[in-house]
């Protein structure tokens, strides 16, 4: 299935901003996080289609996965 992966802040360094990637049906967020060389501890916020999601959330065809370290401002 096709998943759009978006990376933000320091996650972009040495990786990419946005990429469409092929994954096996049933892939969860954790699998993609680890495949990107990120650790669970580094993850601040996960969004799927603009909604917050957990690491074990199972993705669907066409989903957009957005990954952020802990960031803030205001």
């Amino acid at each position: 299935m096709r998943i759009t992966v978006k990376l933000f802040a320091s996650f972009r360094l040495g990786r990419f901003k946005f990429a469409e990637q092929e994954y096996q049906v049933g892939t969860d967020c954790r699998t993609i996080v680890l495949a990107l060389g990120l650790t669970e501890a580094e993850i601040g916020v996960i969004m799927v289609n603009g909604r917050h999601a957990a690491l074990d959330y199972v993705l669907q065809e066409g989903d957009t996965l957005s990954l952020f370290p802990l960031v803030g401002g205001g």
Binding site: F8, A9, S10, V45, F68, P69, L70, V71, G72, G73, G74
Partner: peptide
Amino acid sequence: GLPTYGTNVLVNI
């Protein structure tokens, strides 16, 4: 996060 990207890190999120 704040020292590197400033408060403007919020635009994308």
